[in-house]
Design a protein around this nucleic acid. Sequence first.
DNA 1: ACTTCCTGTAACTATATTAATTACTGTGAT
DNA 2: ATCACAGTAATTAATATAGTTACAGGAAGT
Lengths: 148, 148
Amino acid sequence: MRVSTRLSDSIHLLAFLNIYADQHLTSDLIASSIETSPVVVRRLMGKLRQAGLITTTPGSAQPALAKPLNQISLLTIFYAVEGDKSLFAVDLKTNPECIVGGNIQTVLQQYYQDAQTAAEARLARTSMQDIVDNILVEQAKKDALSHN
Amino acid sequence: MRVSTRLSDSIHLLAFLNIYADQHLTSDLIASSIETSPVVVRRLMGKLRQAGLITTTPGSAQPALAKPLNQISLLTIFYAVEGDKSLFAVDLKTNPECIVGGNIQTVLQQYYQDAQTAAEARLARTSMQDIVDNILVEQAKKDALSHN
DNA sequence: ACTTCCTGTAACTATATTAATTACTGTGAT
DNA sequence: ATCACAGTAATTAATATAGTTACAGGAAGT
C-alpha cells in the first residue's frame, strides 16, 4: 500500500494553525501548504478535533489549537490519526500445527511491542512547541543565507 | 497498501531452520509453516543469503543458518529484508513557498530518525536465540496444559 | 430571507506497496 | 537421464492510503 503521511500532515497542519493564526484559515489555504486536497485536510481536522487537539466551527473557517503548543506531543497526534497502529506487523496467518507457526505470533508480539514503545517514548518527548521552534530556526537560516 | 510481514516471516523462517534442522527443508515445507507460497520463501531466503545470515544450495534443499542464533539480531534481519525503510514517513510533497511547508520535512526527519533509532536499538537487543527460546517455552506451556 | 463561503462526510476512484501466482532456467542427486 | 528442487523474472491480486466528487447544512453578510 501507499505509506501513510497522516502523522506528518497532521503535524504540518497544527504548526500551520499556530504560525498563521492571524490568517483566514480555510481548509483550502491549509491544503495549499500541505499540497493535498481540502477534503483530506478536513478529514485530518476531524480526527484532531475528536482527540481534543483543535476546535473547529462548522461552516466557518476558524480552526484553532485547543491547547498550548507545549502540551501537544507528537505521540498524542500519532494516536489521534493512526490509532493503535503497529509499526511492525505480526503475520497472523501461520500454521498452528507447527511449533514455530503455532507460537511465533505470541512471541513476536511482545518484542514488537517493546520496540514500538521505545519509539513512542521518543515521540512523547517532542511537543509541537519543539516543531514550531525548529521550523522557525530553519527558516531563519534560509533568510540569513539569502541576505549575503 | 498491504502491510509488510517480511520481518515476521523471515524470523519465522530462521527459527524454522534451527528447530527443524534435521528435516528435508524444501521451500515447500517452510512455506507450509508460514502459510505462504514457496516462491515467497525462496525470495526471503535470497535476501537473507545476501545478508550473510543463511547458506543455500541451488537445486538442493539444504538451507542452513550461517551463524549461531545468538549472533543474529532482529535488527540485522530487519535491514536484510526491509532495507532502510522508514517507520514514519515524511510527506515529501509540501509547498516550499510556505514557512511550514518549506521547512517541516527537515525538522520531522530528525525527530523521526530519533524515534526509529530507539525502536531499532530494541530490535538489536533481541537475538534469534531469544526468539527460539521463547517459542519453545510457549510450546511447553501448551504441552503442560494438554496433559491435565 | 437570500446568497455566499465554508465545514463535515459519505461514496467512489486512483495510486502504491505488498504478497501470490505463473512460468521458466539451471543445478544436484539418484 | 530423470526428478526434485532453488533461483528469479514477470504478471496478477489484494489492500491501505490519498485524492476526487458530491452534497447536506451551518455562519455571516447583505
